[in-house]
Amino acid sequence: MIQLKVNGSSKQFSGDPEMPLLWYLRDQLKMKGTKFGCGMGLCGACTVHVDGKPARSCQTSMKAAEGKTILTIEGLYAKGKQEHPVQKAWKQCAVPQCGYCQSGQIMQAAALLKDKPKPNDKDIDDAMQGNICRCGTYQRIRQAIKLAAGVQA
C-alpha cells in the first residue's frame, strides 16, 4: 500500500507501483488539470510539485511518490481560496491560447518563483525550457512570470 498526500489530503494506492503518478491523478483521483503530453518527460504538460519541487508526473512512478507530498494545479488554486500570484499574472497577461499546457507551465513557474523570487531572463529560460507550448505563448509566459515576481519586464 503506497501512502501519499495530494493537495493536503492523505491517499492510499494499491495498484501497479510502476504506474506514473500522472495516471493516478487523472484516472483514479479524476484530477484532470494535470495533462498528458508526451509520456517521456519532454514537454512538461504534466508538471506537479513533489515535496515542493517541480516534477514530471509522467516520469514519477507511484513507487517513487510513496510518502511524498504532491501539489497539483487544483491544489495551487485552492490554497487559501486565493488565486496564486502566478495564476493572477497569467490572467492579466492573457497568456493561454488553447490552454492545454498551461497547468504545467503555471506549476513550473510557481516552483521557479519559490526558488528564485526575482528571476532574470536566463533563470526563466532555464526553468521553463522543459515546458512546450505549441500555441507559442512563451513571450507572455515570460511577461507573466516577471509580473508575478514584480521584476521589470
Binding site: K30, K32, T72, I73, Y77, Q87, W90, P96, G99
Partner: peptide, 23 residues
C-alpha cells in the same frame, strides 16, 4: 476592447475540459 476569454479562469486553474479529459 480585448474582453477576456470566457475560458480564461478555467485554463489557469486546470478546470477546462479537453478531449483527453472527457469521461
Amino acid at each position: 476592447k480585448d474582453v477576456p476569454m470566457i475560458d480564461l479562469n478555467d485554463l489557469v486553474s486546470g478546470k477546462g475540459t479537453f478531449g483527453m479529459d472527457a469521461e
